[in-house]
């Protein structure tokens, strides 16, 4: 079973992603900020990261660049934000995200992109 780490400080968003992803058969873990996400990444293996931008203590940008530069995981990461501007998108991609999605995310959209990044054949 593929494992996905959700990194978001908003409990509602975590619950939302989790319900969609678990419904699709993924194993989901959560972290409330970059620091916690890093702790978990050091201990466990995740096939995919779903990362929010703005979080207390350590934000998504800094978490991803740390994840990449310390070579903790080079698995795909998607960053989800409310900002649609080119600058925000650039920052995300520079930091180490592989995909930048703008909220609101429909369940279908989330699942399709997860499947693509996880290499699962579309049915």
């Amino acid at each position: 079973m593929k494992r996905i780490l959700i990194v978001d400080d908003a409990a509602t968003m975590r619950m939302y992603y989790r319900s969609i992803l678990e419904g699709a058969g993924y194993q989901v873990d959560e972290a409330i900020n970059g620091i916690e996400a890093m702790e978990k990444s050091l201990q466990e293996f995740f096939d995919l990261y779903i990362v929010d931008v703005n979080m207390p203590k350590q934000d998504g940008y800094s978490f991803l660049s740390e994840l990449r530069s310390r070579d903790i995981s080079q698995n795909p990461a998607m960053m989800i934000s409310t900002e649609a501007s080119a600058n925000d998108r650039m920052r995300a991609l520079v930091s180490g995200a592989n995909l930048y999605l703008v909220k609101p995310i429909k369940p279908d959209q989330l699942l399709t992109n997860c499947r693509l990044l996880l290499g699962e054949v579309h049915e």
Binding site: L67, R68, Q74, N75, N98, L117, G119, E120
Partner: peptide, 17 residues
């Protein structure tokens, strides 16, 4: 890390399609 993650993402995507 960036290069590997891009390759991982592309690889997933290729698999999927």
């Amino acid at each position: 890390g960036r290069l590997k993650s891009v390759a991982a993402s592309l690889s997933g995507c290729l698999h999927a399609i």
